[in-house]
């Protein structure tokens, strides 16, 4: 299969290792990877801020980028939810509606793609660490991805997966919410981060790099030893090319 990568804008600029790890894993599974450099941001910040006219332009641009792509895979539940759930809403009753629906059908979140589309749970990775999984809200509630990343993690050699009491609680990121209402956002990450720190895990793993930015940012500031790690990075550990 020829997979077109959908790399969220802030992953591109601030967490390129997540994109590289995604490439490594998908290549290892025997697929051809392409990256279309005309892609930038999906428009979610404007969509969430009520600027739907602006966001619509971003959506139409992204439709064009991936027009003839066979499948689109992105290592972010949130940005993938934007394409899968919100582009169709944003573009309904426009001339782009059918194309938005079609792109939604062939776009997948990274762990969802491997488990549901490829039918693989063991990618051959190994990592001797204790990890806990954080459900990003968009992946869990918009895309209904819950078991897939856990299946992938359980198959990693040497990895011990433990659950956190607040695994379903929002980390408080919420895009611009984190900076428009910083006090509420901080209170939320205190609850989340506090629970994570109490697990004694080495890593908090998620399919959502934006949650990891928030959680990791707070954990670092507070000097907690548990580190954030994207699921693609975990699955790229110990892979031989």
């Amino acid at each position: 299969m020829r997979i077109s990568l959908f790399i969220p804008c802030f992953v591109d600029q601030l967490a390129p290792q997540v994109g590289l790890a995604s490439v490594k894993v998908l290549k290892k599974l025997g697929h051809e990877i392409e990256f279309r450099s005309e892609q930038t941001c999906c428009g979610q910040p404007s969509f969430n801020s009520g600027q739907w006219d602006v966001a619509r332009e971003g959506a139409i641009r992204t439709l064009k980028v991936f027009r003839d792509a066979e499948v689109v895979v992105g290592p972010s539940g949130s940005c993938v939810a934007m394409i899968k759930k919100f582009y169709p809403e944003l573009l309904k009753n426009t001339s782009h509606a059918a194309e938005a629906d079609a792109l939604a059908q062939r776009t997948f979140e990274f762990s969802e793609f491997i488990v549901r589309k490829l039918g693989i749970t063991d990618v051959g990775a190994s990592l001797k660490k204790k990890v806990t999984y954080h459900d990003g809200c968009h992946a869990m509630r918009e895309l209904r991805i819950k078991e897939e990343p856990r299946q992938l993690l359980r198959a990693v050699r040497g990895l011990e997966l433990i659950e956190t009491e607040e695994s379903e609680s929002c980390c408080g990121f919420g895009g611009l919410f984190a900076v428009k209402f910083p006090m509420i956002s901080t209170a939320m990450v205190q609850v989340k981060g506090g629970a994570l720190a109490r697990t004694g895990a080495d890593y908090v793993v998620s399919s959502d790099p934006s949650c990891l930015l928030q959680i990791g940012g707070w954990l670092t500031r507070e000097g907690k030893p548990i580190r954030p790690m994207h699921i693609a990075e975990v699955l790229a550990e110990g892979l031989t090319q």
């Binding site: 601030l14 900076v179 990450v189 707070w218």
Partner: peptide
């Protein structure tokens, strides 16, 4: 700066 008040950036 609202972000950085309580959180680091990598």
């Amino acid at each position: 700066s609202a972000w950085l008040k309580t959180r680091d950036l990598p």
